[in-house]
C-alpha cells in the first residue's frame, strides 16, 4: 500500500461520451462561467448523461486535477446539473413501483431467495478471476468514497435518527482509525487484486450502469428534499450487503485471492448485519416518527437503489455470459 498525498491523487477529467459530457468537461478545462447547454434531452440511464452528472457531482467530493474548486458553486454549472438531475430523477420516479408501506418494502429485501441469481451468486458459483477483477474495479468508483455521500444527510436529521446514522457512518469511517476506514480497506483490496488503488482511476472503464448507482447517492445526498431518499438508499444498501458480501468473500477464497481482498468483504458481513438493524430501527423508525410525510421518499430511495443495482447486475451478467468485458476499456 502506498500512501499518497490526497492533493496528488486527484482524478483526471475523463473522455466525453456525448454532447452533454463534452460540454461540461470542456467547460471545466476553462475558468468558471462558461456556457453550458440550455436544454437536456438524453437517455436518462445512458453513458452521456450519467458521465456528465458524475463529473458535476465530483466537484463536491475530491474534484479533478487542474479544475478550479470555484466550479463547485458556479451558478451556470449548477443550472446545467439541475437539468441533468431532472431527467434522471423523472426516469427513476417513473420506473419504480412507489408506495407508502416502508415495512413491506424493507421486508421484501430481507427475504433471501434460495436460488438467487445476482452477480454475487454468479461469482460465488462459477465466476472467473477476470470477472472478479472487473467487478472490483467497477465498484472502486463508489468504495473509494464509501460513506461520503451519506455524510451530507447528517445536518438534515435530528435526534435519534441523526445519532444512529452518525454511529453507522463512524463505523464506515473506521471508528476513528484511518487504516480501518472502509475506503482504505477497499484500496488495500484493489492492491491485493493487482489493481490500481488511485481515486477514480477506473472512471474511464466504468459504464453508465455503475455511474448511475453512485449518482443516485450524490443526488439524494445533495438535496434536502431527497433526505428521505438518501436514508432509504442507505438502509437498502446495508440490508442487501451482508448476504452478498458473504458470497463474494466465498468466491474470493475459492479463487485463492489475497487476504486483503477477503478482509473487505468479511468486515462487511459483520458490519452490515449491525448497520441494517440500526438503519431500520433507529434511523428510519425515528425519522418517520418525526416526519411521516417522508415515507414515500424513503420508499423511493429503497426502490431506486434496487432498480439501479439490478440494471448494473444485468449489464455485468449479460457481458460475462458472452465472454466479453463488462467495462468500457479492458483492464
Amino acid at each position: 500500500m502506498t500512501t499518497v498525498d490526497p492533493a496528488v491523487d486527484q482524478a483526471v477529467l475523463p473522455t466525453p461520451r456525448g454532447p452533454l459530457s463534452a460540454a461540461v468537461i470542456d467547460a471545466l478545462r476553462a475558468a468558471p462561467q462558461a456556457d453550458l447547454p440550455s436544454r437536456v434531452s438524453a437517455d436518462p440511464y445512458g453513458e452521456d448523461l450519467q458521465l456528465a452528472l458524475h463529473v458535476c457531482y465530483e466537484l463536491h467530493y475530491q474534484g479533478f486535477a487542474g479544475v478550479s474548486d470555484e466550479w463547485e458553486w458556479d451558478p451556470e454549472l449548477l443550472r446545467f446539473r439541475a437539468a441533468l438531475e431532472r431527467v434522471f430523477l423523472d426516469a427513476l420516479r417513473a420506473d419504480v413501483p412507489g408506495g407508502a408501506d416502508i415495512g413491506d418494502v424493507l421486508d421484501e429485501l430481507l427475504v433471501e431467495p434460495v436460488d438467487g441469481v445476482g452477480v454475487s451468486h454468479h461469482l460465488k458459483d462459477e465466476g472467473e478471476w477476470w470477472q472478479m477483477r472487473e467487478y472490483l474495479a467497477l465498484r472502486s468508483i463508489y468504495h473509494l468514497k464509501e460513506a461520503d455521500p451519506h455524510a451530507w444527510v447528517i445536518p438534515r436529521l435530528r435526534g435519534r435518527a441523526k445519532a444512529a446514522l452518525v454511529a453507522v457512518e463512524f463505523d464506515e469511517f473506521g471508528g476513528g482509525h484511518g487504516d480501518r476506514m472502509h475506503s482504505t480497506l477497499f484500496a488495500n483490496l484493489l492492491v491485493g487484486a493487482g489493481l490500481d488503488d488511485g481515486y477514480l482511476h477506473y472512471l474511464e472503464h466504468a459504464p453508465a450502469a455503475m455511474l448511475a448507482t453512485v449518482n443516485l447517492m450524490s443526488l439524494c445526498g445533495l438535496h434536502r428534499s431527497l433526505r428521505g431518499g438518501l436514508v432509504g438508499h442507505f438502509a437498502a444498501a446495508e440490508i442487501t450487503t451482508a448476504p452478498s458480501a458473504a458470497r463474494i468473500a466465498k468466491a474470493l477464497e475459492r479463487m485463492d485471492a489475497h487476504p486483503d481482498c477477503v478482509e473487505f468483504f468479511t468486515e462487511h458481513i459483520e458490519a452490515d448485519a449491525v448497520h441494517e438493524q440500526v438503519m431500520r430501527r433507529d434511523v428510519i423508525g425515528d425519522l418517520l416518527a418525526r416526519e411521516p410525510e417522508l415515507t414515500e421518499s424513503v420508499v423511493f430511495g429503497v426502490q431506486a437503489t434496487e432498480l439501479l443495482e439490478q440494471r448494473l447486475g444485468e449489464h455485468l451478467l449479460r457481458a460475462w455470459k458472452e465472454g466479453q468485458t463488462a467495462l468500457r476499456l479492458p483492464l
Binding site: E112, E270, V274
Partner: peptide, 21 residues
C-alpha cells in the same frame, strides 16, 4: 469494538457468535 454488536441468537450464523444475517 463496534458501537453495536449483533450477537447471533439463531445459531445459524457461519460467523458465530456474530450475526451474519
Amino acid at each position: 469494538d463496534r458501537f453495536v454488536v449483533a450477537v447471533c441468537a439463531c445459531r445459524r450464523s457461519k460467523r458465530y457468535p456474530l450475526c451474519d444475517t
